[in-house]
């Protein structure tokens, strides 16, 4: 299935940042310090992510991130 192109004035990401139900899968790049860990999204952009809501966020692990907070650990490979 191919997504319809969005017009130039529309949100061009997978979801608008204000969407209450956005979840961005990321991979943990660096160990958490002070509850914050360096993570990367599918496009390779890095983010500082709060990981305190997870039991563990090991380096190489996959997490689901909303507004810079990891809300769930993801199994397997990177995906939504």
């Amino acid at each position: 299935m191919t997504p319809s192109p969005a017009p130039s004035y529309a949100c061009t990401g997978e979801h608008c940042i204000t969407c209450s139900d956005e979840g961005v899968p990321m991979i943990v790049l660096g160990a958490a310090r002070g509850g914050l860990a360096l993570c990367a999204d599918q496009e390779g952009r890095t983010h500082t992510v709060e990981t305190t809501l997870l039991e563990a966020a090991p380096v190489g692990g996959r997490v689901l991130v909303h507004a810079d907070v990891a809300i769930a650990a993801l199994p397997g490979e990177l995906g939504r």
Partner: peptide, 17 residues
């Protein structure tokens, strides 16, 4: 701060911080 329970933890953790 707006949003449902998905977003609220992010606000809560920020306020705690």
């Amino acid at each position: 701060a707006i949003g449902f329970e998905t977003t609220a933890p992010s606000t809560a953790l920020t306020l705690k911080r």
